[in-house]
Computed example of a mutant assay.
Amino acid sequence: MKINNKEYKITSVDKKAEALCQKRWDSIAKPLHSLGKMEDYLVQTAGIIGDVNVKFDKKALIVMCADNGVVAEGVTQSEQNVTAIVSENFLSDKATAAILCRQTGAEIFPIDIGIAVDTKLENHKIAYGTRNMAKEPAMTREEAERAMEVGIQKVAELAGKSYKIIATGEMGIGNTTTSSALASYFLNEDVEKMTGRGAGLTSKALEKKIAVVRKAIEDYSPSFTDAVDALAALGGFDIAGLAGVFIGGAIYHIPIVMDGFISTTAALTATRICPECADYIMASHVSKEPAAEKILAALGKEAALYCDMCLGEGTGAVTLFPILDLAVEIYEQMSTFEDIDIEAYVELK
């Protein structure tokens, strides 16, 4: 596939490694499949990395931070300056996601991919925020592809440093509006069913948000030739960057963990651009946003956690990390049926 005039090769996951990992799970002295998704995540990872020796000793969270011009339409409770303030908090362990990373042994990588002011974050700014999609397409196609390239290259960098798993997060006032637009378009669902209150809106403001999303889809979608066109017109730099992270996971064979609504929308976007990357994506939790379950279903993913979380930043994705670490400990250390000399469980028909 080609993004930003660069060719990338994506190969299939290793089904033999998946089968061998499942065989190891089935040899462990417990009822078959009794650890549910803890087993499934490791089997998926074995296929991704092509090795039954699954490790998550180096974990990362990539947080794409950007502003969205559509906030000018009054579709958010917070002012645009909140994006920069919260984003820089990631650097001082004061933000929720940063605290969770510290507690779970993960490293956080916040990226300024399009904040409206200059920041102290790692700088990959495409522009100082997107355009107002109520007035014109949010990005050009070239800008969207450049943003995706930022995500791909960040995965390449972390892969080169032996990171074993990457969680996805975002920060950007107005990005539930852009996510609702993309999710509604890609799933061909009524905008009202896919648009929630985000960080908090009055009923009147929610009606305005729905109207803005509906009109943008009506205005721009007739000219779309592919998913990148949709991303450019309706999305944001944060979503485009995260779409690149999901595609990068498939290119460099690293599992990528989805977070909540914005992150899953980015994953949906990535799979519409590159269907093969779906096998490299893990679900963490189910967001409270109304579109969340529909997006997971469209991706064929089942989340492990139902915590009623809707914060973003990668908080749900990072919360999955301790569960994965526990799964690895059992996988590596628990006795097998042969070790304790008892008859193994068998699949019953």
Rank of each mutant, 00 (worst) to 15 (best):
Lys16Trp: 00
Val75Leu: 11
Leu61Met: 12
Lys58Phe: 04
Gly114Ala: 00
Gln80Tyr: 06
Ala66Lys: 12
Lys2Phe: 14
Asn5Glu: 14
Gly47Ser: 09
Thr11Tyr: 05
Ala127Lys: 15
Gly129Pro: 11
Asp118His: 09
Ile48Trp: 06
Lys55Val: 11
Ala97Ile: 00
Arg131Asp: 13
Asn53Asp: 15
Thr45Glu: 03
Glu88Ile: 00
Lys2Tyr: 11
Thr76Gln: 06
Gln77Gly: 15
Lys37Val: 08
Cys101Lys: 00
Arg24Tyr: 02
Gly69Glu: 11
Val75Lys: 05
Ala106Asp: 06
Asp112His: 05
Asp93Leu: 15
Ala97Asp: 02
Phe90Tyr: 15
Ile113Ser: 01
Glu39Met: 14
Asn81Ser: 13
Ala98Trp: 07
Asn68Met: 08
Gly114Trp: 02
Val70Thr: 12
Leu32Trp: 09
Val71Gly: 12
Glu39Trp: 05
Ala95Gly: 07
Lys2Ala: 12
Leu35Arg: 10
Val43His: 05
Ser12Phe: 07
Gly47Lys: 08
Gly105Arg: 02
Thr76Gly: 05
Leu20Asp: 12
Ala95His: 05
Asn123Tyr: 08
Asp112Met: 06
Ala95Lys: 00
Asp51Met: 10
Thr76Asp: 07
Gly50Asn: 06
Thr45Lys: 08
Thr11Ala: 06
Glu18Leu: 02
Met1Ser: 11
Ile10Arg: 05
Ala60Asp: 07
Thr104Ser: 14
Ala66Ile: 12
Ala19Thr: 08
Ala116Glu: 11
Ser92Thr: 15
Ile10Asn: 03
Ala19Trp: 00
Ile108Thr: 04
Ile111Cys: 09
Glu88Leu: 09
Met1Ala: 13
Thr11Phe: 07
Val63Ser: 13
Ile108Asn: 04
Asn4Thr: 04
Gly105Pro: 03
Ala95Tyr: 02
Lys9Cys: 08
